[in-house]
Design a protein around this nucleic acid. Structure first.
Lengths: 139, 139
DNA sequence: TAAATTTGTTATGCAAGGCTAACATTTTGG
DNA sequence: CCAAAATGTTAGCCTTGCATAACAAATTTA
């Protein structure tokens, strides 16, 4: 529980909180419960941990809000997710659902260094669309 | 513990057993302990689970051997590892250690479908080396 | 507004995967 | 061959992450 470190699981909860707040302006525990397919009790537990680590503001029966630290962290995670999913979808040609599902696992593992290279590679491939054309014809 | 399913952790143990047996003809628990940086006790526990699931042959104070099922599974895992590591090293230009370390996490998550596409993409890029040249100059 | 429903919390328990310490067995080197 | 060292096992404990059930608070609605 080294204060600032987040497990994969807690990263998922934080990501969900961030996305919901961005979409709706607020988020309720039961929404998280449904989105992540876990019990309400598990959500309570996870939110307490995130609050203790200062990623969100939260107390018994209180509204959930996200801190600046939480926003920063959530953006990092979501950026990783997007870069990975984009590589799978746009370059490898994987169907969206599968791309998203696997990206969701990898986002917790990939290093900043590899992510940066992968992002650059995505951009490179966008700038040379005939490349992907050629790959799609073979594979 | 649904009989044939292996957790990430057990996949790591099996991979290690397979590699050691291939290199040296045999493997001892203490070697696994060192390679995976876990206690001897944890190795005993993991080996018992792998034996129960029929991936290895193993009993108290007995030599460890791998079953046909184990070999098949280990090859799958190692193939995943190699495809991922190769993409990181040869295409993104990641340094070997980091490529191996991250591949070791992803190999437990990636689907067969994505792996197959990634492998095809590795081959495609090998057949067009000027591509990677160009990317390296930009990124 | 008071009862019913929904949502949140707490208590408790389970499984996985790890640890240490003590004990058992095997291997090694005088 | 036998004592010391190395290796393997067991017992007991911890943490994470999940669950269910019972209870508390908030919200909805009749």
């Amino acid at each position: 529980m080294s204060d600032k470190i987040l497990s994969s699981s807690l990263e998922d909860y934080l990501e969900c909180v961030y996305n919901r707040i961005n979409l709706n302006g607020s988020v309720k525990a039961i929404e998280i419960s449904k989105e992540l397919s876990v019990s309400r009790a598990s959500v309570t537990e996870a939110l307490n941990k995130l609050a203790q680590k200062k990623y969100i503001n939260y107390g018994r029966y209180e509204m959930i809000s996200i801190t600046d630290l939480g926003i920063e962290k959530a953006k990092e995670i979501i950026n990783k997710h997007n870069v990975i999913q984009s590589f799978f979808e746009n370059i490898l040609g994987i169907e969206k659902d599968e791309a998203a599902r696997v990206a969701c696992g990898i986002e917790h593992i990939i290093t900043e260094n590899i992510l940066q290279k992968l992002s650059a590679f995505n951009n490179f491939c966008s700038s040379e669309p005939e490349l992907i054309e050629k790959f799609r014809q073979k594979g």
